[in-house]
């Protein structure tokens, strides 16, 4: 047993989980900022983004060192590859949270408008996807990750419905165009977060099963069970 290597892999796992927590928190806060039109929460998201970026660099550095120094193979190689990609997705999740807060900062300058879109409901569903994707990583369970992939269609439908309703609002109430446009962008940001959660789930499946399920690919073969 390569004890030091296994310890380093555990450290990589822990750091990615912390990063996942930060990204998840950023999305939660951004959505709360939208609902409550709260600039204080917006600033918290922006400050958190610095932490996420720093964590991304640290994880990449550790993963890069392990690739170079330990020359991992099979499940360990797949794990590190998955971590590198999940790390990038989580950083992008943080970016999407920042994008949402930018919309909020724009919205607080304008009069409130009643809009026919349930952003909190979509945010809850997207948050659940991110959480489940991270749980599948923590547990190393491909079945959990598969469930995340199925949730993505629901989010896509929410975004499509929001698009139709918000465009209709813009046509019917031109004075609400800017607010509707901001809301539309927020739904797009949330949909992108869901896409990143999907990517994370696909990477977990690749790590655990050795199967590439991206772009609806049918896996050629599967590796032995991880544990």
């Amino acid at each position: 047993m390569r004890t030091r290597f296994q310890q380093a892999l555990d450290e990589l796992r822990q750091r990615l989980l912390l990063m996942g927590g930060l990204a998840e928190q950023a999305v939660d806060r951004a959505c709360r900022a939208y609902t409550e039109r709260d600039l204080t929460i917006c600033h918290m998201v922006l400050e958190g983004e610095t932490q996420i970026n720093a964590a991304e660099r640290e994880i990449d550095e550790l993963a890069f060192d392990l690739l170079a120094m330990q020359q991992p193979m099979a499940v360990d190689l797949r794990f590190i590859m998955a971590v590198i990609k999940i790390n990038s997705d989580l950083e992008r999740v943080g970016d999407q949270a920042v994008n949402i807060t930018e919309r909020v900062m724009d919205l607080v300058e304008m009069p409130a408008e009643e809009l026919p879109v349930d952003i909190p409901r979509m945010a809850t569903a997207v948050g659940a996807m991110v959480r489940r994707a991270l749980e599948s990583f923590i547990e190393g369970k491909a079945e959990l990750a598969m469930a995340v992939l199925e949730m993505d269609n629901v989010i896509d439908r929410m975004r499509d419905e929001a698009f139709i309703m918000l465009v209709k609002t813009m046509n019917e109430r031109p004075q609400a165009t800017r607010q509707a446009l901001d809301a539309l962008l927020v739904t797009r940001n949330l949909e992108r977060v869901a896409d990143h959660a999907t990517n994370i789930a696909e990477d977990v499946i690749f790590w655990v099963r050795g199967a590439d399920v991206r772009h609806n690919a049918i896996p050629e073969t599967t590796a032995p069970a991880k544990k």
């Binding site: 390569r2 099979a74 590796a223 032995p224």
Partner: peptide, 17 residues
């Protein structure tokens, strides 16, 4: 070296025994 079919192969090449 990336996705062996046998657990024993994987355990060996990943240094678990």
């Amino acid at each position: 070296f990336t996705k062996p079919s046998e657990k024993r192969t994987e355990d060996y090449i990943t240094g678990r025994f």
